[in-house]
Amino acid sequence: MTRPPTAGRRPPTAGPVRRGTIWAGGLVLAGAALTGCARDADRLDMDTPGRTLPVPATAAATEVSLGTTARGPALVDGAGHSLYLFEKDGANASTCEGDCLDMWPAVTTLEPPKAGLGVRAELLGSFTREDGGKQVSYAGHPLYRFVKDVSPGDAIGHDLADHGAEWYLVASSGERIPS
């Protein structure tokens, strides 16, 4: 019995090409796993509603200045993001914890905050939170960002009732900006 000429044999290029393809595919999968396709449980992301990456305290002083927002002039951070006060807070005392901080991250600093353009340095300060972090305050109001303000100047959190009280942008006088 004679066998067909290719039975039991591979074409001359099939072996190396197939092995090379499998090897390259394995590298792609390994690379994807190493570069972050797997989720890190310690890091939150913007794809989950109400969740964001924590805003870390910076080694340099946090800067607060008067900037342009969708609601007019108001306090902003060094990146131009709107800053808010929470009416439930006391003077240099935050009541925002847990889920509240997930939506309204505290503006924190490691060094005394820096007064930028339009901000009165004598109104700018910081205090130690119950969790041990240093939160920036203005005229005694603890300052926060809002996670739904994505771009500099966004003011989606202004005049919003959340976590038991109203949230407002802050004027250079230290007063809340009216609705």
Rank of each mutant, 00 (worst) to 15 (best):
S94R: 01
S137W: 01
D102C: 12
P113F: 08
G125A: 13
M103D: 09
T109Q: 04
M103W: 14
G98P: 00
R145S: 12
P142M: 02
L110I: 04
A115D: 01
G140W: 02
L101V: 14
G140A: 04
A91N: 05
Q135C: 07
P112N: 09
G90I: 01
W104V: 12
E87F: 09
R120S: 09
G98A: 15
D102A: 15
A91W: 02
K88Y: 01
R145A: 08
G98S: 14
L123Y: 08
L101W: 02
K134P: 00
L123P: 04
Q135P: 03
K88F: 08
V136S: 03
E130V: 10
D102I: 07
E122W: 07
T109V: 08
T108M: 05
G140H: 03
E97I: 13
G116K: 03
N92A: 11
A106M: 07
E87G: 13
R129I: 11
G90K: 01
L101S: 15
R129K: 11
L117A: 15
C96F: 03
D102Y: 10
T109Y: 08
R129C: 05
L117P: 14
L101I: 10
M103F: 15
A139K: 09
L110H: 06
K88G: 15
C96S: 11
W104H: 12
E87W: 03
N92I: 04
G132L: 04
Y144I: 11
L124M: 05
T108W: 01
P112S: 12
V107H: 06
Y144F: 14
L143F: 11
H141S: 10
E97P: 00
L101Q: 13
P105C: 09
P142E: 00
A93V: 05
K88T: 14
D99N: 10
G133H: 01
G116E: 00
V136H: 02
D89I: 06
G125F: 08
E122A: 13
W104C: 14
G132N: 01
N92D: 10
A121N: 08
W104A: 11
A121M: 07
